[in-house]
Design a protein around this nucleic acid. Sequence first.
DNA 1: CTGTTAGCGCGTTCAA
DNA 2: TTGAACGCGCTAACAG
Lengths: 338, 338
Amino acid sequence: MSVTLKDIARKVGYSVTTVSRALNDYDDVSEETKQLIKRVAQEMGYHPHVIAQSLQRRRTNTVGFIVPATERYLSDPYFLELLAGIGDGAASCDFDLLVSTCKPMCPKERVVYERMVQGRRVDGIVVARTRCDDERIAYLVSEGFPLIAFGRIASELDFPYLDVDGEEGVCKAVKYLIGLGHQRIGFIAPSTYLMFAEHRLAGYKLALQGNSLELDPALVIEGNLTQAGGHQRMGQLLDLEEPPTAVVTGNDLMAFGAMEAAQERGLVVGRDIAVIGFDDVPLAAHFRPTLTTIRQPIYDIGKKLSQILIEIIKGEEPAERQIILRPELVVRESSGVR
Amino acid sequence: MSVTLKDIARKVGYSVTTVSRALNDYDDVSEETKQLIKRVAQEMGYHPHVIAQSLQRRRTNTVGFIVPATERYLSDPYFLELLAGIGDGAASCDFDLLVSTCKPMCPKERVVYERMVQGRRVDGIVVARTRCDDERIAYLVSEGFPLIAFGRIASELDFPYLDVDGEEGVCKAVKYLIGLGHQRIGFIAPSTYLMFAEHRLAGYKLALQGNSLELDPALVIEGNLTQAGGHQRMGQLLDLEEPPTAVVTGNDLMAFGAMEAAQERGLVVGRDIAVIGFDDVPLAAHFRPTLTTIRQPIYDIGKKLSQILIEIIKGEEPAERQIILRPELVVRESSGVR
DNA sequence: CTGTTAGCGCGTTCAA
DNA sequence: TTGAACGCGCTAACAG
């Protein structure tokens, strides 16, 4: 078995308490004994038992994240970036990361969250892909459990979050397309139960209004954030009497699918039709044609999320409790030449 | 604060011990008191304190996984599938999943593993992307710490693993290309420090030999598993005096990059040059052209990995300790017409 | 400066 | 059928 404080205590002839204090650098231990104890601990290969520490300190030094995995083989690569960011941010504060997966809106989602919260497995939770009416956040807030959300929600509930301004992002994209001369611009929206769907749609409308273009309801269509979904929806748009000459999608994955659908109909994306995505996942720059998209710095967001969450856990009131980042339009081939 | 056994005991007038036994369905508690205690526990919203249970049971019911994240914005989507599989497999056994990330071969990798092992944060670890000489596995084995690897290693060390037969996979792919009439087939290999690089290269050689084709060293070139890498290496191959007419790559990401490079030179992939990848990540079916590739059922592999690991943790000798799966060639557009 | 005592929440002897 | 006592490994309050 592994070496404990007791083993060290026996070896050096001091009490367990003194050993503990020496190793934690308390200043009420003589320098000599401190040195001795540290040396022996090192020699014996001592490592604190994190679980025991957690029990005693009433703190697990762990944050939780439940990946809203949509479907087995259709998960958004975006979550890997986010996860890596959250994990690295936590690690930078000496916190660990506990991960589960659960299909969004699945009935057992509640159980997954309860498991983490009630079992006190973690000190706080990162909630991603917020919903307009988000029962996960409602639950955590009602439990007084530390959380931070990536995204806002529809109600006035007060909780810490970080979000990217999807309205501004899509607005920028649509304006850019209008500037290119497009008049009929389609929008393949994210599933409407997601909060960011509302923001992004608002950005779409705003840009049209700002240019006195009328909104044609036939051009706005709800997608499901997958390639297959984007593919199918693009088909619908192209089948219209008057198809759009440009399309903005709710995320990059749908943009990939949409470009595929356009190409299957013999259209050259970037020439016959313009496509703009949202996220800037790593592949966006490598897809063919390369994808013009609205960039969210996902890794950095993940990192920031866990760092703020940990501040909250530690009781340090964070400088900014509610942050909105401004996205950036990354112009590549799919939107056509300037 | 949250309710403990003590709270319940006080309420029902029984000792903590009895409450504990009742809730754990010991059969030396009268049916009535059991019912009573369970009801009250339910009413009070009792949930066991997992950390305390861990300390007592000397088992965390948690498995660890360190994502070998290559570079911030270049991580392989493949790991998300694997992660989801591992997480779901663990959850199916009531285990949690603790995740860290670390650049492979990074000096601090050892520290990340030690943190999990020595701190007894987890009961076992899943090691992915095995290396020919894998110090992570050597470490875990030397510590007698439960592990399972996704992949084999070069030495004779005995440990449980699950692997996909990369040799057979690549061999199949190359033979398929030869059947299509290709004589000069390039191979963009994975980094040679990875064990599967060796297997896949062996498969390449085997297929050539089997068809009495000579191996031209200029056609075999080491890549780094990223799109950018695949792109650059494909450039090199195409710059040869006698460029290949077909190329197999060590993973799908490199295949994407390679196709990009070919297209930039005006080649039509699937007509002027054939490309075959390895993995079958979700995007492979949606890239343009769709990618012919050697399929590994990554999600299922992840699930199986954690389930076997947990069997080992529980001391149940698993039915199969070392498993080799046979991969399947998925033919799509990038390899050309039949 | 150091040791004793106590307790985090739980499960498991052992004795009644 | 039940409870008291103990310990998992650690830290903290209080003496000395």
